[in-house]
């Protein structure tokens, strides 16, 4: 009996131990399940955080590419502006080049001869063809009489241009002051020999040897351009020296011929 009771007791104890073991195992399984779930969650988080990083990386890349694109667009605009500037500058340089070529040809022609009449003809050609004057006259200073005397004209007769006294009237004042005169009305209808629309002094340094008086312009000549003013100053200088030196040369040539004739006459043997 006692043995039976002890066996039952032991069996109960064993059953309790077994139940506890079962409970513990159940708890372990639950814990295991929880841990698996947690691991899965963590794995998912890690995976998700990896994608976000990539997205962030791509976003940064896109931002930097966009930045580069904007800076390229900015540079393109700048280059385009620079191109426009270069094109405008090219046109300007080309124009300047043409003007210089014109001035070169004009001064080359002016100094190509020592014949006084030829120099006057070249001055007329320049004023007609390069400036576009229709009626004008070249007046030179006569030192003895202190007057400006017309020596060449275009579009008007020489006789229609009166002499001008130094310091009087437009031409006389231009000769006295040595400064160019420009009328406000360059397309004046009426012609007046005393009132040129433009008057340019012919100067060698500060010494005025004459003037060019322009009375009217060709109908197609609407206004004066920069090259005209450059031509005016070229004429004021180069034409003056060309006229002055050719006049001196022609005078000295004439004197030389006279002296030569005189010498020839002296050398001739006296007739018996």
């Amino acid at each position: 009996m006692d043995r039976e009771t002890s066996i039952i007791k032991k069996a109960d104890e064993f059953l309790q131990i077994f139940k506890k073991g079962e409970e513990f195992t159940q708890e372990l399984l639950k814990e295991n399940e929880k841990l698996r779930f947690r691991v899965a969650q963590l794995e998912e988080t890690i995976e998700r955080s990896g994608d976000e990083g990539k997205v962030r990386l791509y976003e940064e890349r896109i931002k930097s590419v966009e930045g580069e694109l904007n800076s390229l667009k900015e540079r393109y605009k700048q280059v385009e502006e620079e191109n426009k500037d270069f094109a405008a500058k090219y046109v300007e340089v080309e124009e300047e080049n043409n003007n210089l070529a014109n001035l070169y040809v004009a001064s080359y022609q002016l100094h190509s001869t020592l014949d006084f009449n030829e120099v006057l003809k070249i001055v007329l050609e320049i004023v007609i063809n390069l400036i576009g004057a229709e009626k004008f006259a070249v007046l030179l200073m006569e030192e003895k009489t202190n007057e400006l005397v017309p020596v060449a004209t275009e579009g008007i007769a020489l006789a229609d241009i009166p002499k001008a006294r130094f310091g009087e009237g437009i031409a006389g004042n231009v000769a006295k002051e040595g400064e160019s005169y420009f009328s406000g009305d360059i397309h004046r209808e009426s012609f007046s020999a005393d009132e040129p629309i433009v008057c340019i002094p012919l100067k060698i340094k500060e010494h005025v040897i004459g003037v060019i008086a322009i009375y009217s312009l060709l109908t197609q000549k609407e206004k004066f351009s920069n090259i005209d003013y450059e031509l005016f100053s070229l004429l004021a200088g180069h034409a003056a020296t060309a006229i002055f030196s050719s006049r001196l040369y022609t005078q000295s040539e004439r004197k030389l011929t006279t002296i030569q004739s005189f010498l020839d006459l002296l050398k001739e043997k006296p007739r018996r």
Binding site: A101, Y104, Q109, E125, I126, N129, L130
Partner: peptide, 15 residues
């Protein structure tokens, strides 16, 4: 006929 003008035009044409 004008030597100045002739030279000027020729100069431009040669360019």
């Amino acid at each position: 006929d004008s030597p100045t003008m002739r030279q000027l035009i020729s100069f431009a044409m040669k360019r």
